[in-house]
Each structure stands twice: as C-alpha cells, then as structure tokens.
Design a protein around this nucleic acid. Structure first.
Lengths: 122, 122
DNA sequence: CTTGACCTTGACACAGGCGTCAACGTTTAC
DNA sequence: GTAAACGTTGACGCCTGTGTCAAGGTCAAG
C-alpha cells in the first residue's frame, strides 16, 4: 500500500510517517516510480508507535517495541528491551509527578501567603 | 550597577538578564556609553522572576508579579493579577498531575500485561 | 493532452529559555 | 599605550514531532 493509504488507515499524517522512516522506525520498499510500498504489518507497527507516543514515550523510546514486533513477537512489549523501557518510563513519570507535587505545594504556599483568604483544596 | 554586577548578585547570566529585558520584564537606564545601569530594586525583581521560573512559571506568567513589585508592593504576589496567575497555575499543575497519573496507570497496565512477573508498586 | 490527485525530497517554522560565538566599542589596570 | 575584562547587538543552536510550502515527478480519468 502507498503512503496515503497507510496514513488514512492509521490516522497518521504522511508527514509523520516519513518522519518515522527518517528515524529508522519505519521501512518501505520502493516501487519503480520511487513511491513507498508498505506491507500490511506496517499498519500495526504504526499503531504501536502512536499508542506509545500517546502515553508520553519519545519516538526513540518506541524503537525497542518496533524492533520487537519486527522480530515476530505478537506484541511490541514482549521483549526484554521493551520491558526495560516500560520500567524506566515508570520511574521517569514518578519523578515528574514528585516534581509537580512539590511545585503544587510551593505555589499553594505562596498563594496562601499572598492571599490569606484564598482557600486551596488539596 | 552594571549588568555584570547584577548577574553576579542574582546568580543569573547576563544573557538571561538581557533576555528578560527584551521581553519587557526588566528595564535599565543607559549610561552615556550605552551600558545598562540597574537600580538596587532590580536585584529583588530578578530574584522574584527566578523564583517563579523555578516553580515552573513561564516568563510571561511572571509579568504580573514584576508589575506588582514595580507598583511598590512589598511582594510580587500581593496584587490581584498575581493571585489569578497563582490560581491558574495551580489548576494547570493539577491537570498535569492528572495526565501523568493516567499515563502512569497506562504504562503500568501495559507492563503488567507484557511482563506478568513484574510487580509495579503504586 | 490536460486536469487533479497522489507521490517525491528539501527546507522553514514553532515553543522557551538560554548557551555561545561574532564583531566591535569601553573601561580599567598596569 | 596596551591588554584584559566588560559592555553592546545580532544571530544561530538546542529539542521534538509535526504543519506546511515549494518545486517537481507520476498516474488515472476525461
């Protein structure tokens, strides 16, 4: 299938698909006219990438999952590398949450000081 | 005082000070040689900006605080506009925390599915 | 043959705060 | 007088995924 169809079926812009390819996450055969020719499996691959991006992964972090799928696993997360990324991501998110909670407390404290009448839930 | 001294006293780079000025947060008289000439009060003003940036405010969001100080208030947060920013920021942070918590849950779920043996605290 | 839809690569733009270099003027200290 | 330290403005780079425009090739339908 050509890039337009893949884009339509995955809901991803052609721009993004080319970008993923540029970063080695997506590959495509080329027709004699130079057009990209995608396999059926690529639909799934792109979906995996999108799902991960959605959850807050960087494109780079989706690589192990893509590789995992390419190796024939039924799920991108079934490989050791992917699991490591999952765990690392969890740690990162926890850290971010801690930072945000600290900020929240800081802002709430400042607010309370500046505006004693303002009640802050939490 | 000149920019170097202000930088040293506040622990902020001269680059940043010029950047703040470029965005209308800082003002300076100019000497006959074109050098910026800062007032004592600017030390405090810069400190206020930095403290807010530290907490996660954008430069733009520090503007009401700066204006507030300029109007002679003892604290940048003593004005209505500042309080509004505080409250808006609290709401934003809460939203971000919710997003992160949702992501965390999502990642944890995926991890649990990919790696049944992996325990995830939380 | 022409129109229009689709494909190609390349490149600029964004957001935000700041590092950093360039090219050049000023002040300070020796 | 001269070098070092400091000042000035201007501009590019970063980071990340994507929008968007440009200039052009390809192909199917009329």
């Amino acid at each position: 299938m050509r890039i337009g169809e893949l884009a339509e079926r995955t809901g991803v812009s052609t721009r993004s698909l080319r970008y993923y390819e540029q970063h080695g996450l997506l590959r495509a055969r080329r027709g004699s006219n130079g057009y990209r020719d995608y396999a059926e499996d690529d639909v799934r691959l792109v979906s995996e990438i999108r799902a991960l991006l959605q959850i807050g992964f960087t494109l780079e972090e989706t690589r192990p999952f893509v590789d995992c799928l390419r190796r024939g696993h039924s799920t991108g997360g079934s490989c050791a590398e992917s699991v490591e990324v999952y765990e690392r991501k969890l740690t990162e998110i926890d850290q971010e949450i801690r930072v945000l909670l600290a900020r929240r407390a800081e802002v709430a404290a400042q607010l309370a000081q500046s505006c004693p009448g303002c009640f802050v839930r939490g």
